[in-house]
């Protein structure tokens, strides 16, 4: 040890080892990233003239947003109440319907075909953005809160049932075996071995979903599916920016309350 130290002079330069050891790979990655940036920026059809106008426009818009106009509060309250009601109802229906679907999607307690069908349903409904679901439902049941409700129900069911399925798959199978060993039927296994392990997380997920539904209920209206979003998008079309600002502030407040409530309840559940 001391021999090598005296033989070679102590180095005076040091560079930290890179995350990617081979320099060729490192530079290649940088080149790819740069090439992607150039390509994607070039591919976007941006009307630069229009974008350049954007900054004065933004200033103008902000100027018109203040002071926020709460004078049409009746319209505002009606929209917000509708959004919140859609969120409440959809969360409840979702949490009920998610239980059977979640059970079916748990690979360790269900036969393979049932599992596959349930998983496919969940993946399908999870992939599409709420607004896509909303517009499809608008086409099916017409404009109004029913389409929004159905959208939120589908989104809630897929989210909650996925969580249930994952919880069941990760639970302690020893407890299931122990209850099964007493000669219990499937329903009894469900109540005695599975439900106690999964219930607390399930309730937490439902509350979280209520919070998420409140957030989503404010946008489904943009495609005509009810709630405050309908009013909001109308104000943008009419350049009623002071009323837009009032709605946006209300939404921020609403989401803040929803999140606070959700955190509070989940804290209590723990």
């Amino acid at each position: 040890m001391t021999d090598t130290a005296t033989a070679t002079p102590t180095p005076t330069r040091w560079k930290p080892p890179s995350m990617i050891e081979r320099p060729a790979v490192r530079y290649a990655l940088w080149a790819v990233a740069a090439a992607y940036l150039v390509w994607s920026m070039g591919a976007l059809e941006v009307d630069w003239g229009r974008v350049a106008q954007g900054f004065p426009r933004a200033g103008n818009m902000v100027a018109r947003m203040f002071p926020p106009d709460f004078s049409r509060w009746d319209l505002l309250v009606r929209g917000v109440v509708e959004s919140v009601e859609m969120a409440f109802a959809a969360s409840f229906i979702g949490m009920v319907l998610a239980v059977p679907l979640g059970l079916c999607a748990a690979g360790n307690i269900m036969p393979r075909p049932v599992y596959l069908v349930a998983r496919t349903l969940i993946v399908l409904s999870r992939t599409f953005h709420e607004v896509i679901l909303a517009i499809l439902f608008v086409k099916i049941v017409g404009f109004g809160p029913l389409a929004g409700l159905l959208t939120l129900v589908v989104a809630s069911v897929s989210f909650i049932s996925k969580m249930i399925a994952e919880d069941i798959e990760n639970m302690n199978m020893g407890q299931v075996e122990a209850v099964r060993a007493t000669g219990a039927s499937f329903a009894k296994v469900l109540v005695y071995a599975i439900q106690p392990q999964v219930l607390p997380r399930y309730l937490g997920v439902c509350i979280y979903r209520l919070d998420a539904n409140i957030r989503h209920s404010t946008v489904v209206g943009i495609v005509g599916a009810g709630g405050i979003g309908m009013t909001l998008s109308a104000t943008f079309k009419r350049y009623d920016y002071d009323f837009s600002m009032a709605i946006l502030l209300t939404i921020i407040g609403l989401v803040f309350i929803g999140e606070f409530f959700s955190n509070w309840v989940r804290g209590k559940l723990r």
Partner: peptide, 10 residues
């Protein structure tokens, strides 16, 4: 942002 920058990917 559509109101600010006009329609489009920006």
């Amino acid at each position: 942002f559509v109101a600010i920058f006009g329609p489009g990917p920006m």
